[in-house]
Every structure is written in C-alpha cells, then in structure tokens.
Nucleic acid binder design. Structure first.
Lengths: 238, 238
DNA sequence: TTGTGTGAATCCCTTCACAGCG
DNA sequence: CGCTGTGAAGGGATTCACACAA
C-alpha cells in the first residue's frame, strides 16, 4: 500500500523511513509523524503566507492555532517533531518558519507532474494556479480518447497513453494526477509505478494497490458529500 | 465550527447530536461516531455495489475489509455502531447491508445542491455523474462573473449572487458546493447559513466559520499534494 | 464449524502543565 | 515576564480475542 494517504481513514501516521541526514538541520526527525500533523503543517504554511502579506514578522503558536482551528499546544507539538524553530518569550519568525515548513513539506523545489486523464476534472486541474504557486508543474497530459489526443492545452499537447512510460522517464516526472475512470486507474498506476513514479494524487474511487515506497493520496468527493449528508441526517432526527 | 469535516486534522468524531428516534431500526446509535468510521462506511457502500454487480448475495467482514484496506475487526466495529446487520457464520446480505448503509449515510433520498462558483472546478463538478448516482442533484448555479451570468449549462442558467438567498430558500437547497475564490468564500457561506443551508463542500483554502449545526467538508488539493511531497521527501534521504 | 458482535487491551494522538530560555 | 518545548496524562480509535449464534 502507498505510504502517504489514507486510502480512507486508516494510516494513523506516516513514517519518514530512514531518519537520514538531510538539509533540514533538526534533531533527526522523530520516527513517526501523524498524518494529521502533516495536514496541519500545510495549513500553517498557508497562514504564514497570509501573515507575511500582512507585514507581521513574528507569530505565536496561539495565533497560528486560531487561524487553523487547533490549539497552541498542538501547533507547538506539531513543530516539535521537526525541531525547535521558535524563540521563547517571542514566538516564531514568520519568514523563517515559512522556509522551514516549505523544506519539511518538500515544496522548496519544483515537482514535475503528469496529468493522466483530460476529462472534466483533468481540465479543471491543468494549470490550476494553486498548484503552480507551490511548485507543482504539469509537464505532460495523457488521455486515451482519440478525439483528444493531439489537442493543444497551453504549451502542451495531449499524448496517447502508449507514451506514458516515455514521458515519465524522459521528463523526470515524479508525481501523477490520476483522473481517469475507475476501471483504468489501477492499470495506469501499475505502469507509472513501473517507471518509477513516486506519488499519485488519485481521483478514481478505488484503493490503488501500489508498493510501499509509492505515496498515494485519494480525493473522494462522493465520500465527502456523504460525510455531509450523514452529519445532517443524524443531527435532525431524520 | 462546522460539525462534520476536519477543517484539517481535528474533529476526531462526529456527534449525531440527539440519539433521537428514527427510521433506522437500530440500538439508538451510540453517542459518538468516529469520522474515520463514516469515511469507511462510504467505501463499504461502494464495495457492496460492486459486489452486487458481481452477483454475490453475501459478504464477510473479511472480504469487505480486503476491498477497503482495513481489517475485518474494523469493519465489524464500524457497523456495530449502528446495529447488528450480519448473521453469525454467514456474513452480511449484500442488498440488505447496502440499504442500511444508504440509510445511515443519508443517501436514501435526494439532496438538492447549489453550485456556487462556475469556474474550472465548478464546471468539472456540475453534472458530475458520481454525484447524481448518489442522489445529489445540482439545481442552481451561481457566479459573480457578469460574462457568465445568464449562460445556459444543461437545463440551468447561471444566476447572479444576488439571487443566492432566493434560490436556496425557493428551491429547498440544503447543500452548497463552494467553489469560489478564498476572499469570497466566508461571505457566501455566511449568507447561505443565514437562509438555512445545512452543509457545505468547501473548495476554498480557508477554514470557514459557521455555526455548530452546519456541516463543512473541506477539499484541499494543495494540502494533499503536499502530503505526497512530504512522504516522498522524507523517504529518500532528501 | 464459520463468522459475527463486543468487552478488554493496546496504541497513538491530543491535551495538559510546567520547566526553562530569551 | 512571555511563550516555547516537552514529558506525562488523558482520551479515542484500532486491534485482539473470544463467547455465541446460525
């Protein structure tokens, strides 16, 4: 199974396998990081960017907590997994913490992404500004529909699935966004894994089977809608 | 804060407020259901539909577990929150369990949904077959862009945000899909809450502030991409 | 005998509370 | 004095193990 992701609800924690030496100058990242911590780090990063725009230079764990619907203790505990970034009595330097979080989350570099599936979802995601702003760059588009193959999207031309391996290998693609029908998803994933893909953002409503070194994040909007209708239904009596 | 959702990482459990009498003939649903249980129920439902297509009449907790990347004990525990649906020595009747799950998740009826924001994401979601198959029907589209207002999408015409309250009230809309820019999201949410909306599927990367009786589910693709790059980055040493 | 339903045990995440540094 | 960093406590969710029903 994929390392990241909650294929749904499982995965209590991500294990950053080898503590390994690394750019991050911190206390040998403690073995197991809760998946929820990572999600929160992502929010802290966003908050820090907002705060930076507001011109502030330091933040307290409490303010970060308020903006993220957590507690100050949780913020500190989350950060403590990776080191000590704050100054007692003062708080955190906004720009410094932002940089640290970018390192930790791995968004201090460019990621080459392939978009597999140029349907409705695919087209919404292609060139999605939020992705680009975090260094995720779509460098290939693949679709099986013969009427789409060859079409020009921005600077890219839609490729035939036969070219999948060539594209991934040739362009140094590490992540794929899988936005194909459920029946096709596993097969595409297998092929991508075969040529060394490292992570999959999966929109197909199935749990992909991939080796442990491949990370998978599932996007399941129906599930989320069902979580809403459950909450609403339970609440009211019927 | 909204009842459902994990504005990110928090919300360990959803509380089905009043145990209340209800259609479901089960042992007065035990006070607190883990959010992860609900996510899994959603998967079980999907698996059951697949199994039904395959023509099987019963399933064991073990098979359900295999298809959903959980354990048999977890499946039984999840279901036990709502009653005893299986037969010892046999398993679960596929059609019966499917019906129960549909009741529990609240998808045994139609939900009227408004799509707020007719941009890339909105257009990908409009008429999304997976939504319709679960009884979520889009009955209104709203967008602030003057060049879009009035445009015809299928049987619907895009409406001006001024009409938001009228539409929600007049059409009996209970859920909104919020696919507008971050700056506009809170304001729209407030207005929708003001006219009695019950749930929000939120694509804006902010934590909406809503009263406790309103459910919110956040969709945050950047966060998921960051979870991938974190997992990948940690794994390899750099 | 098979596979469910469930208390008990375990594990992990969050919260608490405070020592300690700036 | 203020606010971080963190061991310890607490609370939930998952896993275990088995009694029991079909």
């Amino acid at each position: 199974m994929g390392a990241a992701s909650d294929p749904f609800g499982r995965s209590p924690a991500l294990s950053p396998s080898p503590p390994s030496s690394q750019t991050l100058s911190r206390k040998t990242v403690s073995r197991r990081i809760p998946a929820s911590t990572i999600r929160r780090l992502s929010h802290y990063l966003r908050s820090l960017e907002d705060i930076e725009v507001e011109g502030r230079e330091t933040v307290s764990s409490e303010e970060l907590a308020d903006r993220g619907q957590t507690t100050a203790a949780q913020v500190r505990k989350d950060l403590s997994h990776f080191g000590s970034f704050g100054k007692r009595g003062l708080g955190y330097r906004v720009d410094e913490l932002r940089g640290r979080l970018r390192q930790i989350l791995g968004v201090d570099r460019l990621w080459k992404v392939a978009l597999i599936g140029a349907g409705r979802i695919g087209s919404a995601l292609f060139d999605y500004p939020a992705f680009a702003s975090r260094g995720y760059e779509c460098v290939a588009i693949v679709d099986a529909d013969p009427t789409k193959v060859g079409a020009q999207w921005g600077v890219l031309r839609i490729r035939h699935p036969d070219e999948l391996e060539t594209l991934i290998g040739g362009l140094g693609i590490e992540l794929i966004i899988l936005a194909v029908p459920a029946q096709a998803a596993q097969q595409i994933a297998d092929r991508a894994v075969g040529v060394g893909i490292k992570g999959i953002l999966n929109f197909a409503p199935i749990r992909l089977k991939v080796p442990a070194h491949v990370a998978v994040e599932d996007v399941n909007l129906v599930m989320q809608l069902e979580a809403l209708s459950f909450a609403i239904t339970q609440r009211g009596g019927v």
